[in-house]
Design a protein around this nucleic acid. Structure first.
Length: 363
DNA sequence: TTTCTTACA
DNA sequence: TGTAAGAA
């Protein structure tokens, strides 16, 4: 097939096809005499794939990488690429909604004054930009998996006999943390149990411990995590949980899909301004009358912060770098309570472990 | 006529 | 990616 024929067949321009070739997505052979490109059936299949992935907004470079995986028969990684693209779309969706909200404010401002309120518009634009950067700052964490290597090293420090999964590894490294971890998750299960038969979402599920418990309690669970590595581990443990790649700042689900939204020991990875975006996202995917249940290190007083750090440090000096990173960002629970009340949520808080709180709120 | 390359938008 | 130009 020459370029014209195949371009007509697939409904794209010859220029586009040559462009894909230039970008390394395609490598048709050329006729010796005139240098015309010849396209085989395999090339046609490749082009169809490119067109399909383009259609869902995948960047050419990402398509190139995905095709390379296909060539190597890395089916799983191809699937990962698709999931990643899906998550990216939710990210874009989030940003789009935010831009629209900003525009509404601009229009309202312009509408209610005689001259164009240039200063105000600029302020709105600036705020919008800040929010956008808050979200995209997370985008850098997408290939968080390479950080998993750091995590792996940590796991290696744990005796193989003790290492059933990541959580048990953490348990070995830090008993204090485990106590809080278990207590918090049990508390959540206890609070959520009446919701058996309904739909729940676990955010930052990791290896799926909490989601697994809730599933067992009778809920239909979905779970998201920003690490494909973690999702893989989770899938191996809990086949019935619907897993999706995604993050809290752009939850990869439509509005009002869940009766229950939970998250345990995940939100402390966020910065303070990011947390507000996260809460908004949780509210968005929650059905009216649904319940949110969060648990994390939510330190209220500086003293407890100090004690908490000291305990962590003394428990396992060797793991200090990682542990320290984990507690670097605190979730002050009074801050969350204030926010929930501001949004007319009926929220309560319960301490379930040292410096660990469970917060429940009704939408 | 068709395709190719290259430059530019 | 689209358009344009000059060459094979």
């Amino acid at each position: 097939m020459l370029i014209n024929e195949i371009s007509r067949k697939l409904g794209i321009t010859p220029r586009a096809i040559r462009f894909y070739e230039q970008k390394g997505l395609l490598a048709p052979t050329k006729q010796k005499e005139n240098g015309y490109r010849i396209y085989t059936d395999h090339d046609a299949w490749r082009l169809q794939t490119i067109i399909s992935l383009r259609e869902v907004g995948m960047a050419l470079e990402d398509i190139r990488l995905t095709l390379a995986k296909t060539d190597l028969n890395r089916q799983e990684e191809v699937l990962n690429a698709l999931h990643l693209q899906r998550s990216m779309l939710f990210q874009q969706w989030s940003e789009m909604k935010q831009i629209i909200a900003t525009m509404d404010q601009m229009i309202e401002a312009a509408d209610s004054s005689d001259q164009l309120p240039t200063e105000l518009l600029y302020e709105l634009a600036k705020h919008n930009k800040e929010l956008r950067e808050l979200r995209s700052s997370w985008r850098d964490h997408w290939d968080f998996d390479h950080k998993a290597s750091q995590f792996d090293e940590l796991l290696l420090s744990v005796p193989a006999s003790e290492m059933k999964d990541v959580n048990s590894a953490i348990a070995v490294m830090n008993p204090l943390m485990t106590t809080a971890y278990d207590a918090a998750q049990s508390k959540i299960v206890e609070l959520i149990a009446p919701y058996a038969g309904r739909k729940g979402l676990d955010i930052g599920t990791g290896t799926g411990n909490l989601a697994g418990k809730l599933q067992q309690a009778g809920l239909t669970m979905a779970a998201i995590d920003q690490s494909q590595q973690m999702l893989k581990l989770c899938a191996a443990k809990f086949a019935d949980i619907q897993l999706k790649l995604g993050n809290v700042l752009a939850i990869p689900y439509m509005d009002a899909e869940f009766d229950v939204v939970v998250s345990s020991f995940a939100l402390h990875h966020l910065t303070e301004p990011q947390r507000e975006l996260a809460w908004r996202e949780m509210l968005r995917v929650l059905k009216p009358g649904g319940i949110i249940c969060l648990t994390d290190y939510m330190l209220e007083a500086p003293e407890s912060e100090e004690i908490f750090l000291r305990n962590l440090i003394s428990s396992q000096a060797a793991q200090l770098p990682m542990m320290h990173e984990q507690v670097e960002l605190y979730m002050v629970h009074s801050e969350l309570m204030a926010w929930l009340q501001q949004h007319a949520m009926d929220a309560t808080t319960q301490q379930v472990g040292q410096d660990v709180y469970v917060i429940t709120a009704q939408k």
